[in-house]
Design a protein around this nucleic acid. Sequence first.
DNA 1: GTGGTCTAGACCACT
DNA 2: GTGGTCTAGACCACG
Lengths: 131, 131, 131, 131
Amino acid sequence: MFTIDYKSRVPIYRQVVERVEYLAARGLLAPDSQLPSVRALAVELSINPNTIAKAYGELEAKGVIYSVPGRGSFVANNADALRRETLAQAAERLRRLAEELRSLGLDEEDFVRLSRDSWRQAAKERDQKDD
Amino acid sequence: MFTIDYKSRVPIYRQVVERVEYLAARGLLAPDSQLPSVRALAVELSINPNTIAKAYGELEAKGVIYSVPGRGSFVANNADALRRETLAQAAERLRRLAEELRSLGLDEEDFVRLSRDSWRQAAKERDQKDD
Amino acid sequence: MFTIDYKSRVPIYRQVVERVEYLAARGLLAPDSQLPSVRALAVELSINPNTIAKAYGELEAKGVIYSVPGRGSFVANNADALRRETLAQAAERLRRLAEELRSLGLDEEDFVRLSRDSWRQAAKERDQKDD
Amino acid sequence: MFTIDYKSRVPIYRQVVERVEYLAARGLLAPDSQLPSVRALAVELSINPNTIAKAYGELEAKGVIYSVPGRGSFVANNADALRRETLAQAAERLRRLAEELRSLGLDEEDFVRLSRDSWRQAAKERDQKDD
DNA sequence: GTGGTCTAGACCACT
DNA sequence: GTGGTCTAGACCACG
């Protein structure tokens, strides 16, 4: 469920945050279901509990989860809001890409073609992985 | 020519690197034309010369510029290579976006439509800015 | 009679304490009437009996209830004192709010107007809930 | 500028957060002005730098300040947004108070009178302090 | 010098 | 057992 790249320059706690957001936005973590405890996840990932606590704290601040001292940490029921936000962020990233490529001389059709190709390429890579 | 966002968390030296790459890839800095000296640019941007030196060093290592001791730094003849690299990076980012959106339940046509919308949105924002 | 918000960060035992105080101050729990037994309330709220015992202990220490070993826990004859204490606390909270808003530039009439609006808003919300 | 109550049950880092919010919302900290460095403030308050870092991190997440590694932490220009939010929170607290007092048998005029009295009481306390 | 991340280990209140 | 707070001390990249 949780995979961490310890060599990445992306901080471990950020990887945890993004992983939980990813799972929650896609409904793979049911609302109000319990997350692994800070200590349990720390052991599972072989990292310090403080690092997990930091990740959970950020997730709580974002409203993705809620934590109750003495009871545990649970998934908030914000999946829809999270999904919308994820989509909005993706659109923003697409706009930035569009702007960059425009300045390289591409036009709308070039961009759309590149998008379609990229989608198919991603699908192909995924299929290979499934083998 | 050089604009720095001092509030950004992107390191200043990285901003300089990306800015030079951006200008070179688009031919806005002609091959073999001279760049501002480390000290001149440092003064212009109100930045520590070490920071500029670090940026130029990275650009030289990448082959984007070349330095002639005692004379200065010049744009290398790599516009095409840079352009190709930028395009490859954009395609990679598009593939990642495609993968993320696929897992949110979008299909190829949704993605292409979103891409086209984003292009037009970016164009519209650009027009407003020009006013 | 007892409603607990299991998602709240307010400790469950505190919620029980405040609920009993609330009911007693308003006469909804008659003096000398019997409270549910620790075990019964624990079952009703699906909570660890220790938690209820802790709440009752705090209530007894405060003089809100009294316990007769072997017979149970009863509401003390303190409704008036409780009511006065609640009012005093509310006044204190109002003074703090007044101080904060004053430093934001509001004057007495702004504050009184805001108070009146808040009262009406609360009444409106209450009506909607009743539907 | 920063006063901390080390005996309070309110966590130290929260006290720092609220203090900065307070100062920023009232314009006592000019936008883009630099805050004490994490280490400097830690020394000044005789607490661990990690605690200050936690406070600054929360303030950054809230958009009250922005931090640039290597340069320092600065006040964001969100004073207006912060002021609005503070006012909204105050209104919410007033509504809760109104609801509580209503259930104690007070009516709108009682509440407004109590508000006015509290304002004046707060003003009087403030005057005495100024002596 | 700056902030950011991480580890290790402690204590607290709560269930 | 749970999460929350705090200390101490380390290392990193950046300016």
